Simulated scan of single mutants.
Amino acid sequence: MQAEDFVREVRNTQFEFLSPQLLQLVAYKEEIFPNTEERGDQNAEFRLAVLEKLHKTLSPGDWPLVRFLLKQEITFHENAWCIYESIRLCGFLLSLLAQVEDVGLLWEAKTTSFDTMCGFDVQFLVGAGVASTVSYLQSIQEEWAQDALTYIEESQKAGDFHNLEHFREVTHKVFREQTI
């Protein structure tokens, strides 16, 4: 199955009614490389192709799929030795869908490993807007929310959100150029 066909089939079916067999095509599937301790993901390449297709045609109805894909990327990166562009692209797409409640999942992606903490852009956390995200996090009395709130407030003071629209334009361009 091609990524385009996968996206079409997902869009033609309500997400909660998708067949498990279809989702298994993009789900994390551990791969252990022979004679090493290294691990990989058998579905990482196809998942990236799906993310690239979504980047070209993203719509609000893709929200459940993008959330599912980010959860798979988090699992992949829990076992990875670096950060792959797939988690960044997925985080970017989820931030574009601008649902404030996604900050928890985006924070989980950012804090998955040292590499994701460094390479997963803080701007992804505030897709629904800085003020909305801060307000939302202030209403949650959980440790992760307070940690995310502190991080976002420090990033705001550092000017990381000064020109979010420009950041989004540049990020779109970078991901488009990578897929050509």
Rank of each mutant, 00 (worst) to 15 (best):
V122C: 02
Q123K: 11
Q123M: 10
Q123R: 15
Q123F: 00
F124C: 14
L125H: 05
L125N: 03
L125Y: 03
V126I: 15
G127E: 06
A128F: 06
G129K: 12
G129Y: 04
G129A: 12
G129L: 11
V130T: 13
V130D: 02
V130M: 02
A131C: 03
A131S: 14
A131V: 14
A131D: 15
A131M: 08
A131E: 15
S132C: 02
S132A: 15
S132N: 14
S132H: 12
S132T: 04
T133N: 06
T133C: 10
T133H: 05
T133L: 06
V134L: 13
V134H: 00
V134D: 01
V134N: 01
V134G: 02
S135F: 04
S135W: 01
S135R: 12
Y136V: 07
L137H: 08
L137T: 08
Q138C: 09
Q138N: 13
Q138Y: 03
Q138M: 11
S139G: 07
S139P: 00
S139I: 00
I140H: 09
I140K: 15
Q141A: 11
E142A: 13
E142V: 07
E143T: 13
W144T: 07
A145P: 10
A145S: 14
A145W: 03
A145Q: 05
A145M: 08
A145D: 07
Q146F: 02
Q146S: 13
D147C: 07
D147S: 11
D147N: 14
A148Q: 08
A148D: 09
A148W: 03
L149W: 01
T150A: 10
T150P: 01
T150C: 05
Y151F: 11
Y151K: 08
I152K: 06
I152P: 11
I152R: 02
E153W: 00
E153S: 12
E154F: 00
E154R: 13
E154I: 10
